[in-house]
Amino acid sequence: MTLANALKGRVWLVTLAALIVLVIVNAYLQSNLFTPRVLKSNLTVFLPLVLIAVGQTYVILAGDIDLSVGAIVALVNVVTVTVIAGIGTEDAAAVLAGILAGLATGVACGLFNGFLVAALRLQPIVATFATGILFSGIALRVLPTAGLPVPAPYWRTYAGGLFALPVVLWIFIAVLIAVGILGARPFLRHLTAVGGHRAAAFQTGLAVTRVRIGGYVLAALFSAVASLCLTGETASGDPLMGGSLALGSVSAVVLGGTALSGGSGSAFGSVLGALVIGMIGNVIFFAGLPFEYQTLVKGVITLAALAGGVVIARR
């Protein structure tokens, strides 16, 4: 089949088509969708999952999985707000210090995950579940209850604009550029090789352990950025933030055409997958379904989409 051949390795095209259909349906149901205000608020809601899904892609490409990303989001959030509050001033320098502390925390989490899974050879699913428990324990130690508002410069900047475009859109563009740059680096090829055939990658002399740790660090770094975005949205600390993000990111990655077994896929696909998940929620909300049926319909559509994504990715 020529169509199937054309789609080979480009599963994200199907995800893109699904996204376009969802946008059309959404625009039909919600007449003001294409106003700047609504588009911006949609992007603000979708951005954290987009970021985490991109990060999760690099781990899954290497044949691993990271179930601790939700806990990393919570930990980075509380570290950031606590550091800002500790400095005490409400200026840009304090915010910047908080952001840097948050990013460093994320990288540390990623290194820890990678060390356990790649160097100590623990099974990724259970190991990252356990580290997730650890991270959320530390988050609760840092900030026992939700609260501690961030200074106004933080959330005003996040909700504001820069050069006539909203900041959230700039972040989204930056994510796409980062994905493009990472995609052109040899590191991505190494990740894919490690996920596709680990023993062969090892035998050709690839530093398999280091590559896998690199995947976990990337995932944690993207989760940290997602957490900083969420912090800009909620403008406060919450040690229980990010509960459902881990499994949501796995769904987004699969929807984007990345094989869960590793070795093939793309982070661009995951961006589309995350947007599709967000749009499914939107469409169901605006379709005027009775409230109690919304979760069920969303579950069925998501399962069908996941199944469809897997079937198309295999052809």
């Binding site: 769904s251 869960l260 069925v300 998501t302 399962l303 996941l306 199944a307 897997v310 079937v311 295999r314």
Partner: peptide, 14 residues
């Protein structure tokens, strides 16, 4: 032939 993790995760949502 959906990977078990994905199938059962989707079913969880349903």
């Amino acid at each position: 032939r959906i990977p078990p993790l994905v199938m059962t995760l989707g079913m969880m949502g349903v």
